[in-house]
Simulated scan of single mutants.
Amino acid sequence: MKNKFAIVVSQYNQSITDKLLEGALSGLKAQGINQDSITVISVPGAVEIPLPAQLLAKSKKYAAIICLGCVIRGDTDHYDYVCEQVSQGCQRVMLDYEIPVIFGVLTTNNMQQAEDRVGGKIGHKGVEAADAAIQMVNLMQSIKTGDSI
């Protein structure tokens, strides 16, 4: 596969997002994607993910964009606003630019739930995001070429 992939990863909750990134990279590499076909962009927090995702989509250089982050519920409503903004922003990029934008942003109640999703008892959401990106790229190519789905 000669497609290029972009990953936008949040630095906030970096102990988790680093593992998400490692999983996404290993998942892409396991599917035959070379490191030179992967662009990684780091942003301060989850709310900042959609803007670079939009610019990457607008460039038309990438077959898919994987968005990675971790938002953990706190004592205020901030969690709800962040989750809504990042999810709607990523969806908007996907629909506006007709490119798969994979939502690999964990939204958990606590750190343990996040850790369980980056190689713990719930699996690895970084690897799953990479797999979803590959599947969506293949599906989009099939739809565009009219091949059987």
Rank of each mutant, 00 (worst) to 15 (best):
Q11A: 14
Q91F: 07
Q135R: 12
K61V: 04
D77N: 14
L21K: 13
S142Q: 15
G32K: 02
I66P: 09
E128H: 05
K121G: 07
Q85L: 02
V40P: 07
K29N: 14
P50K: 10
G32T: 10
K61M: 10
K61C: 05
K29T: 13
G89N: 01
N3V: 04
N138D: 15
G119D: 14
V137E: 07
M140L: 14
N34W: 01
G146V: 11
G119N: 10
C70F: 04
I102A: 07
A24S: 14
K125H: 13
D80S: 11
G74L: 06
Q88H: 11
G69Y: 00
I99N: 00
Y97P: 00
I122W: 14
M111S: 08
D147Y: 06
D96E: 15
Q113S: 10
G69L: 01
S87V: 10
K60H: 12
C83W: 00
I149G: 04
P50T: 13
L51C: 04
D116R: 10
R92C: 01
D116V: 08
T39V: 13
Y79P: 01
V137P: 11
G27H: 05
M1Y: 09
L56V: 06
D18P: 03
D116I: 08
A57W: 02
Q14C: 08
D131Y: 06
Q11V: 07
K4M: 10
I66W: 11
N109V: 06
E115P: 00
Y81M: 07
T76A: 10
I102Q: 08
E128C: 02
I16K: 10
M94T: 00
K29D: 08
I7H: 05
A24G: 08
Y81I: 09
S26I: 05
Q91Y: 00
P52S: 05
K61R: 11
I38E: 08
R73H: 13
I149Y: 12
P50H: 11
M94K: 03
C83V: 14
L51G: 04
I149M: 13
G146E: 09
D96Q: 14
A24T: 07
I72G: 03
K2L: 12
G123F: 13
K29S: 15
L55D: 11
N110S: 13
G104Y: 10
E128G: 02
H78C: 07
I143V: 15
Q31G: 06
Q88W: 00
Q135L: 12
D96H: 07
V43S: 09
Q112R: 11
R73T: 06
D80R: 12
I38F: 08
L21P: 05
Q135V: 04
P52C: 07
A24C: 02
G74T: 09
N138P: 01
K4L: 07
I149K: 12
A6M: 06
A57D: 05
I65Q: 03
D18R: 12
V82P: 08
G23P: 09
L55H: 13
I134N: 06
G123T: 13
N34E: 15
I143W: 08
E115G: 02
E22P: 01
M136Q: 14
K58E: 15
K125E: 12
A130R: 03
L25N: 02
Q88K: 12
E98V: 06
Y79C: 04
V43K: 05
R117I: 05
I33G: 08
G74C: 03
A57M: 09
R117Y: 02
G123L: 09
S26Q: 15
Y97K: 02
Y62V: 06
L55N: 14
C90S: 09
D147T: 11
T17E: 04
L55E: 14
